[in-house]
Simulated scan of single mutants.
Amino acid sequence: MLGTRPTARGSDPAAGGAAGRPPGCRTGGPGVAARLNGLKWGLWPLGVVHGAAVWCRNRLYDRHWLPVHQLPRPVISVGNLQLGGTGKTPLTAQLIEALEARDLRVAVLTRGYRRRSRSTQIVPACATPPPPVQQVGDEPLLLFRRLRKGILGVGSDRYRTAQQILAQHPVDVFLLDDGFQHRRLARDLDICLVDFSRWPAHPLLFPVSELRDLKSSLRRADVVLHTGPAARAAQVQAWVARTGRQDQPWFAFRKRPAGWVDLRSGRPVAQLNERDRPAGAICGLACPTHFWHSLQAQGLNPVWRRGFPDHHWYRLPDLQAILRARQRYGFNSLLTTEKDALKLVGLVNHLPADLKLFYLKIEMQVEQFPRLLALIVDRLGAYRR
């Protein structure tokens, strides 16, 4: 990976992205794309088995043969059909702020995927110091930072975690993060996010595509938030309506940069200047192409970049690889995501002080967000009635 020299536009085949517009997350030139496409289709039996297993599980829940647990407070679920990168965390963060602004006591339920602790964590917003990222995970810690008076609950058994929260704290509403497939917990509103730039023409699930659930499961959602090609979204919305869900509200959204932050000091940076260039870039995301193209949209073309697996825990060998790349490509700063910054901040002493470190904050922009919020509040009101 370090031995491949990027082009002037920062296109590193090993980094998981080319300089053009991303139709998905697997780019890097026609040859690489063709090999990856051939590999994926060679795994089609696994996609069939995965789809059959998901269909059977959904059928068991639909027929009430698997138990569904009901909480004594309303539950708003935020989830998706695809593997990562659709915007669940920014949307959940935005809902936290909007609901707390209405003086509601919010409790966030999340699994804490790939955290280093298996114990259940119940953390009030007033907790000092904040919980270590190793205990709660990177995305839950991002959500914790948005809470002002609520509770963060992290555990694999979301129902039991919620019961523990209710035994200790007053709660008005639960936000179930990444909850679309977590059907053992009843919800009062199911929000599903879809990225139609990664919507396959075939029905096969991962590893053939990035689908983690059946396309037909979209009919189960109470609200759909979508991004990507509008024409494709309109086609799928029409199909959902024809199959019996004419009452399903759809909202377009996009993720946009919300500004840079100096990782060492925590101070916002108005903009990166010429002294910060050339730059390198790293990220540990399910879809690194989103980050690469966010950089390009701001006129930033890293001379070196590297994508790590989603929720990657950085270690000293990773930092050594960054330093070798810096020696070769001569970048003055290293750009990364807010999620990655949480796991890099404890390692900055192992990087030279003259290497500037910046992370990009992302926010969600939902068309007609007041209407979406009104739907949620109305559902909460119906629960109370």
Rank of each mutant, 00 (worst) to 15 (best):
G330A: 07
S265G: 09
V348Y: 06
K40W: 06
V269F: 12
A258W: 12
V224E: 06
L143R: 06
S11V: 07
F331G: 00
L43P: 13
R315K: 13
I362F: 03
P129R: 14
L323E: 10
N349A: 15
D172V: 02
R114Y: 04
G244P: 05
A325Q: 10
R148V: 13
R326I: 05
R160I: 11
P370G: 05
D188V: 05
P131R: 09
C25P: 05
S333P: 03
L99Q: 00
A270P: 01
Q82P: 00
F206G: 08
L263T: 12
V32T: 13
K215V: 11
R306H: 15
H202G: 10
G346W: 11
L295D: 02
Q164F: 08
I165P: 01
R59P: 04
R102I: 01
H350K: 09
D195K: 00
I191G: 01
I362Y: 08
R275I: 10
M1G: 10
L99N: 05
G85N: 01
N301K: 14
L109H: 06
L2M: 14
G307V: 07
V133R: 04
Y329F: 14
L295A: 01
L351K: 08
P288F: 04
I76P: 01
D213T: 04
P124L: 11
A127P: 04
A98N: 05
Q320K: 15
A125V: 09
L323H: 12
Y159R: 05
S294Q: 15
G280S: 09
A53E: 10
A230M: 08
D310W: 09
G47V: 04
F358E: 04
R326K: 11
A107W: 08
S11G: 05
A221H: 11
A321Y: 15
R187N: 00
G299F: 09
L211W: 00
W44I: 15
H182W: 02
M364Y: 00
R158Q: 06
V54R: 01
P352H: 14
V303P: 02
I376K: 00
W55S: 13
E363I: 03
T336P: 14
I322S: 00
C192V: 14
G280P: 06
T243H: 14
L373N: 08
Y383T: 04
R105H: 09
T289C: 01
L316E: 14
I322V: 13
A101F: 00
G16W: 08
E274V: 14
S217I: 03
E363P: 00
